[in-house]
Design a protein around this nucleic acid. Structure first.
Length: 807
DNA sequence: CATCACGCTGTTTTT
DNA sequence: CAGCGTGATG
């Protein structure tokens, strides 16, 4: 007997797999014993619409071996809600999806890819544009698990990587006949530096902004599609008097790039859109190739990206954009969340779908985030709600000083891990990368492994740039910056000789391999120099034979470079290890050029491979945490001047973005959210801080002032009182007396023996130190076990980390 | 001509 | 604290 109310939850299970689970369908009604089960086959299901009807003809399903008769399946959270389903199945025409935090946006995109393929759309004609390439890869991976391997052929990536791909194909159309190389921000700054030194007679006695600031100004002007003067008055008023100088630096910078066949990140988009504007024929080719376009994180696209989308969809108008205006956090680099609303102007026939049910966080957390956003100046398009009950009210912890903040967070993390919370469910978020330095030191002292995301770039460290410049110089002999960097590594070669050598190379058209023939190096006095140049020439000669085996090329460069590295840095062992990480990365490529361009378009995150990710907690800037989630989230430094950043306090628009940033941070939390700030004067701790924050009031972030006690609980923490940590995590009603035996019981259990996989079977009742009583819902696999808890919902637990007890 | 030691300065977020 | 320019030294 079928229970009809389950229909709306079941009708979306259209594949053999639901998010990686093997699904079997039970033919008859009744208990597990009498259910005959059929493995779902393609034939059985037919197509998606066959699936829609499917539940009417069966008695229940079995998911990865666990039985879900229809009577109890209402809690099964593996499918789509009606809005998500509508977004998935609306494939024709423009579609705007406004998707709140944790509303299953990614799942919707994944299902939509799978659905399109299921409906017979050629995978190569689907284009999925995302914010990072990792996001695209993960979505396509999940879609492949849902459907089949065809989903891997879907075109996906960032706007920048897509632009690169297209521009390489049509490079002659944009005036780059022999192709081009992509440069990162570091290269940009190097070029600006050299442009400035060329212009230095014009610039004497002028106090110039730093090169990083100049490149920021130029980039912002281009991304906003506004003149430099405009950007200066709006964002850098103190440099407004330098307008004509910066404009001419920009002109020279652009000229430099085109003569040397270089494109920066902005160029990729700008040349792409320029080509689309001017060439209806190419528009038509692309538009007929990519028949279905999807864009994720649409609130963080800029005007140029929106224009690119319009051109790409010109003829078919099958475009779905997904975004959330309340999570727009990239205005500083020219993003324009108004694209979300302007979409309807260009696509008036667009269907609009809102996803407002949050599946991630507890209601307590949403109460908090809603309260933060309720005080925003702008009004946003949705309000989140959840069916998740239980959990605990977010805490705001005043930790006194910064060292105590680090101690509190470390104590808390250790407290949680001792109680079985796996490290990958814990994250510490902060506004700016350097905010975590103190915490990192404390974690290192206590040997708590962590992975840090955001801030410092692997690619920007000097040794990596050194290494890459060999390949740059190899691939693009017209790139004097890269070659210059290489030459500077040679002993007794400084800026002057670099310049002379480059001029000589150019004048005599000598290939780099014969660099040792440089006239001046023939002098007997400079024998050492000539030998150095000879070995450099040999290196390049060998590299030319290795262009199609990047891993061997990296090894060869390392042979040459490691001695230089040892000379240059005291901490060379660490740097050497990082460099060697590049070898396995290079192995995946067939040629050096694609290895290098991929590295630049999708730079790897900071710490590579030093810790096993499964052992490590996460530290991340809020920007880098976008789209991710953890059970326990700490947000540190919620202090005025840090979060919001002191740089944004004067501008209401920027302050508004800071607020959204805090919203993004808080909505990463599934079960528990803890905010911390040092209320006392932390300035005395660091001389450096003292100067910077002089005259500013630290103290609590204005975003958190005057929140009601229902929304957040305030706690004081001072060093040396670990009780405070338990206070922060345990409901106040529970007495200390009750708490103690629990801990002892756990220790006894530990002495016993570690639980084995075979000890737990689906359906058994277990007790978890932090989550309480639950029922095993999925058999152990790879030491992992899924348990359904009354208060916390489904949890994937690691047997090694969670002290589970059978009861 | 390269290199080193010194002191000053400005601190965000990223494809 | 690091990245920069400056001036002294080899």
């Amino acid at each position: 007997m079928l229970v009809p109310r389950c229909y709306d939850r079941m009708y979306t299970t259209f594949g053999r797999h639901i998010l990686g689970h093997v699904v079997e369908v039970l033919d008859t009604v009744g208990g597990p014993e009498i259910c005959a089960s059929n493995k779902l086959s393609k034939a059985h299901i037919g197509n998606f619409f066959g699936c829609l009807l499917f539940p009417w003809t069966c008695g229940g399903i079995r998911v990865s071996g666990v039985l879900y008769p229809f009577q109890g399946s209402g809690t099964l959270n593996l499918d789509l809600n009606p809005q998500q389903l509508e977004a998935v199945t609306t494939t024709q025409g423009p579609l705007l999806v406004i998707a709140g935090a944790g509303s299953g946006k990614t799942r919707t995109l994944v299902y939509r890819v799978a659905y399109l393929v299921e409906m017979g759309v050629v995978p190569e004609s689907i284009l999925l544009l995302t914010f990072t390439r990792r996001a695209a890869e993960e979505m396509l991976e999940r879609a492949s698990q849902l459907m089949d391997q065809r989903c891997r052929s879907v075109a996906g990536g960032t706007f920048h990587s897509f632009a690169y791909k297209v521009l390489r194909q049509y490079s002659q159309m944009v005036g780059f006949e022999g192709g081009f190389s992509v440069i990162d921000r570091g290269d940009t700054e190097d070029i600006i530096q050299s442009v400035i030194s060329e212009m230095k007679d014009q610039l004497k006695n002028i106090r110039m902004p730093r090169k990083g600031t100049i490149s920021e100004i130029i980039s912002k002007a281009r991304n906003l599609d506004k003149p430099i003067g405009n950007v200066l008055t709006n964002h850098f008023p103190h440099f407004a008097n330098l307008e004509h100088i910066i404009v001419s630096i920009a002109t020279n910078y652009n000229a430099y790039k085109s003569t040397h066949k270089l494109m920066d990140y902005d160029d990729l988009l700008l040349y792409f859109v320029k080509m689309l504007r001017e060439r209806p024929d190419i528009r038509e080719i692309l538009s007929s190739h990519y028949r279905y376009v999807m864009v994720d994180e649409y609130q963080d696209t800029n005007k140029i990206q929106a224009e690119i989308i319009r051109y790409l969809c010109e003829s078919h108008r099958n475009v779905m954009v997904v975004g959330d205006d309340s999570q727009a956090i990239y205005a500083f680099r020219g993003a324009n969340y108004k694209n979300m609303f302007e979409f309807q102007e260009y696509f008036p026939e667009a269907k609009i779908i809102k996803l407002e049910e949050n599946y991630r966080s507890t209601q307590h957390i949403l109460n908090f985030t809603n309260a933060i956003m309720a005080r925003a100046i702008n009004t946003y398009t949705k309000c989140l709600f959840t069916k998740r009950v239980g959990g605990i009210v977010p805490r705001l912890v005043d930790t006194g000083t910064e060292p105590e903040q680090a101690i509190f967070v470390c104590d808390s993390i250790q407290y949680l891990m001792e109680r079985g919370v796996p490290p990958w469910e814990i994250a510490v978020l902060f506004r700016a990368s350097y905010h975590s330095f103190e915490l990192e030191a404390e974690l290192t002292r206590r040997r708590v492994p962590y992975v840090k995301y955001g801030g410092f770039k692997f690619l920007e460290s000097a040794h990596i740039k050194d290494l890459l410049s060999f390949f740059r110089a190899l691939l693009n002999p017209e790139d004097p910056i890269a070659l210059g960097r290489v030459l500077m590594m040679v002993k007794n070669v400084g800026p002057t000789r670099v310049k002379k050598i480059q001029e000589w190379l150019k004048a005599t058209k000598t290939p780099i391999t014969l660099i040792a023939q440089w006239e001046e190096a023939q002098k007997a006095r400079l024998k050492d120099l000539r030998e150095e140049l000879e070995s450099l020439g040999n290196l390049f000669q060998e590299l030319e034979t290795l262009v199609s085996s990047p891993d061997r090329a990296v090894e060869r460069v390392l042979d040459y470079y490691l001695p230089v590295l040892k000379e240059k840095y005291d901490d060379y062992p660490k740097r050497q290890r990082e460099l060697q990480e590049l070898i396995p990365m290079a192995e995946r490529y067939n040629d050096v050029a694609s290895f290098i361009s991929d590295l630049i378009l999708d730079p790897p995150n900071g710490n590579l491979g030093n810790v096993r990710e499964s052992e490590a907690i996460t530290l991340s800037t809020v920007h880098s945490a976008k789209g991710l989630e953890w059970a326990y989230v700490f947000i540190i430094w919620v202090a005025e001047g840090r979060f919001p950043s002191s740089m944004c306090l004067n501008d209401p628009e920027e302050l508004e973005e800071e607020r959204r940033l805090l919203y993004v941070a808080a909505t990463r939390a599934k079960d528990d959210l803890i905010l911390t700030y040092p209320s006392e004067d932390a300035r005395k701790v660091y001389g450096f801080e003292e100067r910077y924050y002089m005259g500013k009031t630290d103290g609590l972030s204005s975003f958190l002032l005057g929140l009601s006690g229902d929304v957040v609980h305030t706690i004081r923490f001072r060093k040396g009182s670990r009780d405070n940590v338990s206070l922060a995590f345990e409901p106040p009603k529970r007495s200390v007396a009750q708490k103690k035996p629990r801990v002892e019981a756990r220790q006894e259990f530990k002495e016993d023996k570690a639980p084995e996989a075979g000890d737990f079977r689906p359906g058994e009742k277990v007790k978890h130190p932090a989550f309480g009583v639950g029922i095993v819902s999925k058999a152990p696999k790879d030491d992992k076990l899924e348990v359904l808890f009354a208060r916390y919902g489904k949890k994937l637990l690691h047997l090694k980390y969670s002290n589970l007890e059978k009861i």
